[in-house]
Design a protein around this nucleic acid. Structure first.
Lengths: 233, 233
DNA sequence: CGGTTAAAATTGGTCTGACCACTTGACCAA
DNA sequence: TTGGTCAAGTGGTCAGACCAATTTTAACCG
């Protein structure tokens, strides 16, 4: 058996990891304020400089936002380093299928897990989508917010990142050329109707209906792309 | 011209950036040892804790390697690049849950869609995992290949990218600190058994069994992490 | 009573100095 | 040559002090 290098765990790392777990377990949600340094030090039974070192590490990692005189806040997931590995060349139809699979599950989780603030966020995002769809352009920002709000209500930040990254694939050249052909506001009105069905299922706390509604939305979006692609070819 | 938010530059950031410049200018090459903390503090006209905070930041960024009692060394570029590739800060448990959801579906799709070449690739990856698991280190590369091979057999390149990105979350600091505690080769043997069940279901063309086997593998991985985390606290 | 201003409290930022744990190298004895 | 001891130097952590920035509270005035 080969000898392994021993690696003593530095105190700052231990403190940082403990705080990390509290965040990923949802004890401190994005935007939440952590206890003051002095309190953290006392609670953890360590010195304040050691706490500070841990906070520096977490700040560098993007997990925390330290504001002088105010406090230490949990960064929102969007502000953290983005999932750049997902800049690929998957086709629009592959992305839709992947989103159907993943976002269907996110919608089901949201129907199960969403707290009141998250439900409000989903509703707000939907209202924004309704508002924006009246205009004669593709309401991309509103659509992104809608889908990300649902992912956030799933309660899993890894899923949020995946949904964001897949949605951002729409910004790729393949997607853009396809969407340039779509008609507004007809398509937006259909999208809004489909979003409404998703929202209703989530608000009713019906995971199966939410999953079905999201999958149906993706199927319809897929069909809209097929139609336009055929018309364009 | 919109007003810009003023951002006072914290001392640790200033020190860290100055040291960064010295490294990128070639004054300290990979493997080189920096002056001792006390000397850096004197030369920079700051306190030693401030220097330490800067060194923590640079360590987290992967630029430096701090050895107790020995000194501070510049990391080699290979290690640095690895840390530059860090994406996201989701907790290990969140990543496992997301992977359970997504990779369960990938395994089901693979059981349905895999062509002969893809089945061969999955088998080859599994054989590699078996081989590597006999050694006394975590067979990370083989594990990654196994999971990615299954995603590839799903036939959706967007899913492949998602699986890759989620797997790569294991390279993040949270994950690394957790995995450092795991025992080998016991854990690798369990993993291999669970992988075998996944492969069998895929080869048998049984999507439901494949989905279940993958989910079970993630559940067991989750339990292994829980056990180690409790033991470590 | 409401609005404004100043003072107090709280929070993070940085410093000084002390002591502890670990590493390295030199030296000596077996 | 190997093992043990010691000294010096290094990073690690702590306690306490003071300063800067922000928030909260109290006082003052119309």
């Amino acid at each position: 058996m080969p000898l392994q290098t021993l690696e003593p765990r530095r105190l700052y790392r231990q403190i940082a990891d403990q705080i990390s777990v509290l965040i990923s377990d949802g004890e401190y949600t994005p935007g939440a304020r952590l206890p003051p340094e002095r309190d953290l030090a006392r609670q953890l039974g360590v010195s304040r400089p050691s706490v500070r070192e841990a906070l520096i590490a977490l700040e560098v990692e993007g997990l925390l936002d330290v504001r002088v005189g105010s406090g230490i806040y949990v960064s929102d997931p969007g502000k953290r380093r983005r999932n750049d590995a997902l800049q690929g060349d998957s086709g629009p139809f592959e992305v839709i299928h992947a989103r159907r699979l993943i976002e269907g599950e996110c919608a089901a989780l949201a129907a199960k897990n969403a707290n009141p603030a998250q439900l409000r966020a989903i509703r707000g995002a939907h209202a924004g989508m309704v508002r924006e769809s009246k205009r004669h352009h593709n309401p991309l920002d509103a659509d992104r917010l809608f889908h990300v709000s649902i992912a956030e209500a799933s309660g899993n930040s890894a899923l949020v990142m995946v949904v964001q990254a897949l949605w951002d694939q729409r910004m790729g050249p393949l997607y853009r050329s396809l969407e340039r052909k779509l008609e507004y506001p007809k398509m937006a009105a259909e999208t809004v109707r489909e979003h409404q069905a998703i929202v209703s299922a989530i608000v009713r706390r019906d995971p199966r209906a939410a999953r079905s509604a999201m999958r149906r939305h993706m199927d319809q979006t897929h069909n809209r792309y097929i139609k336009e692609w055929s018309a364009g070819s």
